[in-house]
Amino acid sequence: MIGRELARVSSGTLAFVFHEALQDPTPRAVDIEDPFESRAIREARKGDPTAYDYLVTKYGRRALGIAIGFVRNHSDAEDLSQEAFIRAFQTLGRFRDGQPFGPWVYRIVTNLAIDHLKKSRRRPVPAPIAEAEVSTSRADDADRAIDSRQMGARIERAIESLPDMQQVVARLSLIEEFSHREIAAMMNLAEGTVRSHLTHARSRLRAELQDLRTP
């Protein structure tokens, strides 16, 4: 239905259409085709700046989040996200119609972040950690009381100690909470391979973080 409505909309009102689409609070899963997105990709190929802006607005926040998660630096994360969108737009011609744009740009930003970390050879400094919304029950337990900042730093260190690919998959699955399927699409891996990396990562993390876990 939305598709039919879209077909009636003239190109002169594209800015309005994309703006309205962004107001839609319904979250869209990665595998559901978004007619606005398909149209935005087509218009972006023709160089329409409104279409580019629609895609950046829709996926920018998450792309920035992924980049910050890897590099732990807001300025670098903004640079990497910008570069990821530019690269995605420059290669729109290779993008298959009907595919969601999100996993593609997330994949680019993830790869750029990994390259950035390799080049800078800096250990990422853990960012300020948000108030733990998770450990309320554990915090009540005097024996297991642990400051969320310390806990975050420990988890960060544990994830950093993993081999490269396990680290990337663990970050995307455990911190960013992407599904196996989404990670497979982003990293160009088979779902089974993602599962395997995650199983190995889980074993190591389980050993590392044994004292933080519920008995």
């Binding site: 926040r61 998660g69 807001h74 994360a77 450990s135």
Partner: peptide, 29 residues
């Protein structure tokens, strides 16, 4: 087990704010 790890790792999830998103939009444009 993974769900429990996700709960533990949730505080590490970084959220970009409106200002960052706006800056990104302007820079890309």
């Amino acid at each position: 087990d993974l769900d429990e790890l996700r709960k533990l790792a949730r505080p590490l999830r970084a959220e970009a704010n409106e200002e960052m998103l706006l800056r990104l939009r302007l820079r890309v444009a």
